[in-house]
Simulated assay, not measured.
Amino acid sequence: MATVAEIVTNTIIKKLESGVIPWYKPWTGGEAVNYITQKPYRGINRLLLDSGEYLTFKQIQDLNGKIKKGAKSHVVVFYKKLEFEDEATDEIVIKTLLRYYRVFSLSDVEGIDSKQVIKERENYSIGKCQEVIDNYIDKSGITFQNEEVSAKAYYRPADDIVVLPKLSQFTSSQHYYATAFHELVHSTGHKDRLNRLTATAHFGNKEYSREELIAEIGSSILCNVTNIDTTDIMDNSAAYIQSWLKALKGDVNMVLVAAAKAEKAVEYILK
């Protein structure tokens, strides 16, 4: 008889084979936006900027703001295709105009209020899921923190801390717990636990991608174990995993390798 981990893994693989599903962050307040227009940054800027509102130095001055001491600017890239006719050859020439400028996060600025209105929902605590989290926190000693109107969810090994947006920021209670489980699985890789995380892992490389696969599959298993409705969750997980498989050149077999490590992480959380 197939184990829960095998059932979940097979379901994910089938969804991966059906094509790419656009992945999204299941909470509000998760994009980097231009403070003045409130429009999200696009293209490579999605990777260059963390979530939040951004202003240029001149915009900060015009709004009578003050940059906090020690704050650093961030690069934003602007590119535009220009099409013109070459007078010598009468051919249409297309050139790309590429420029960059620097912006500051509103979190590093004093005297200017945020324009963002974070939509909050009346989500609820799911007893069985919360019990898994609370029991793991008690026995592991990990710090678990919900930030006020956060735009990020992450595990930071140096401080052994999991940080999540508030429950009310998520599209549903189920998505909140799926995200919490994802970060808890990451935490099992700490050197004092399963010793899976490596110092050489960085965004986009194979080690980082593999760890993301482990965390997402582990989250899916925990959702199944705690009887969360996984229909929407599984679609989101499959799309997220698909994005990391691109970094692994579509190596679907890597999902099976990650699933074995994910099952070990889940057993550690539930023991």
Rank of each mutant, 00 (worst) to 15 (best):
M1T: 07
T9E: 09
T11Y: 03
I12G: 04
E17W: 00
S18A: 14
I21G: 00
W23E: 09
Y24S: 12
P26G: 01
T28C: 06
N34H: 00
Q38R: 03
K39L: 08
G43Y: 01
G43M: 01
I44M: 06
L49S: 05
L55A: 04
L55F: 03
L55K: 00
L55S: 04
Q59L: 06
I60Q: 03
I60E: 01
Q61G: 03
N64E: 11
A71E: 01
K72G: 08
V76G: 02
V76S: 02
V76A: 02
V77G: 00
K81M: 05
L82I: 12
D86V: 06
A88E: 13
I94Y: 07
K95Y: 04
R99T: 04
L106D: 03
S107Q: 11
D108L: 07
V109S: 01
V109N: 05
I112K: 04
D113S: 15
K119G: 04
E120C: 09
R121F: 15
N123P: 14
I126H: 08
I133C: 08
D134Q: 12
N135Q: 11
G141P: 09
F144N: 09
E147C: 09
K152F: 10
Y155P: 13
V162P: 10
V163S: 12
P165K: 07
Q174K: 15
H186Q: 03
T188S: 04
N195S: 11
L197M: 15
F203T: 10
G204I: 02
K206E: 13
R210K: 13
E212N: 07
E212C: 01
A215S: 15
E216H: 07
S219G: 11
I221T: 05
L222T: 11
C223W: 05
D229L: 14
T231E: 15
D232S: 14
I233N: 10
A239W: 00
I241P: 12
L248M: 11
V252I: 14
V252E: 09
V255T: 02
V257F: 05
K261D: 15
E263A: 13
Y268Q: 08
K271A: 14
